[in-house]
Design a protein around this nucleic acid. Structure first.
Length: 304
DNA sequence: AATGTATTCAACCGCCGCACA
DNA sequence: GTGTGCGGCGGTTGAATACAT
């Protein structure tokens, strides 16, 4: 025998929630907490199934929800994470406190897909639509992966070349101007008219702007790309992380994921410092969570 | 003002992995 | 070991709204 059924759907209300229902559900959960969704509607006096109550709470009533439009920075981060995680909306949402997977999924389907289309990138794999014919991966990096060094699990990691090239760029990039006489609501609308190289350059510069400095990208707490590049030639220089990775190798510039795991606890667990303090090779201005370790290979390198 | 079309997003559906009996 | 329910997830729908003609 299994458990009792969650609910027989006969006589249960469906469709949009009323204010009264919202009030009942919210006050019940705030007073009693959530123990079993199956019992929530009964105890709260609602003619809804537990699943519906759960959805309403998670997507709409939760007090810690962040309402309002997505910023361009948030959109960029969603695109970046999507290139990394695919349609795993709950994983993506976990990077945005207060945002729900449903909200991000909706935003992706209604807005970001169009944005990628304008950039002539496939929403499925972020590849140029001409090359990928909508789904087939090629050896070319996704656009944002190209800029930031993030790759999907099955793809090759980018070498240091991306960062080195950016760091060694002497002249500031030419400012990209919209065409005269054309009205653009968003910056990426005119970006879509540019070549891919120009778009990549522009996005790269946007990230620099986000970091609040002039073309030098931050790589974590107090760690500048220029420093990283120069220190790469001098591995003895200590970096900006307070990682408790353990031994005297703490001062080295980069280590393999495997050695980090070994050094930290010897049990394969992530080290004791916060995820923000760790950066995968080739990853520019990206915060990793421990979930991202799933996608790392023992040979991959970490800055710290 | 009326009608048609496009867009948004809350809510539902169905599947899956896990836990329970 | 097996069947069943629960919670969670991603895909999809359709009502409400905005915009265009």
């Amino acid at each position: 025998m299994g458990r009792q059924p969650c609910c027989d759907k006969v006589g249960l209300k469906r469709g949009p929630w009323t204010i009264d229902e919202d009030h009942k559900l919210m006050s019940f959960i705030l007073n009693n907490g959530i123990h079993c969704w199956r019992t929530v509607p009964k105890l709260a006096g609602l003619l809804r199934c537990g699943k519906s109550c759960r959805l309403r709470w998670i997507n709409y009533l939760r007090p810690d929800l962040k309402r309002g439009h997505f910023t361009e920075a948030e959109e960029d981060q969603i695109i970046q994470l999507h290139s990394h995680l695919g349609n795993r909306w709950s994983k993506i949402a976990s990077h945005f406190p207060g945002r729900t997977d449903n909200e991000i999924k909706n935003h992706w389907n209604t807005r970001i897909k169009k944005r990628l289309k304008l950039l002539e990138r496939s929403p499925l794999n972020h590849m140029p639509t001409d090359d990928c014919k909508d789904s087939k991966p090629t050896s070319e990096q996704p656009l944002l992966a190209l800029v930031e060094g993030i790759t999907s699990p099955d793809e090759e990691k980018l070498p240091m070349a991306v960062e080195s090239e950016a760091a060694s760029r002497q002249d500031p990039p030419e400012v990209l101007e919209p065409r005269k006489g054309v009205e653009y609501e968003y910056e990426y609308e005119y970006e879509a008219e540019l070549s891919l190289d120009e778009v990549a350059t522009d996005l790269f510069d946007n990230y620099a702007a986000l970091c609040g400095n002039n073309g030098t990208l931050l790589l974590g707490e107090g760690l500048l790309l220029d420093d990283v590049i120069s220190n790469h030639a001098n591995p003895s220089v200590s970096q900006g992380c307070s990682a408790s990775a353990g031994d005297s190798n703490n001062n080295s510039f980069c280590k393999s994921i495997q050695s980090i795991m070994d050094d930290s606890h010897g049990n394969g667990n992530p080290p004791d410092c916060s995820p923000q303090e760790w950066h995968v090779e080739g990853c520019v201005n990206s915060v990793l969570s421990w979930d991202d370790f799933d996608y790392l290979e023992p040979g991959d390198l970490c800055f710290f």
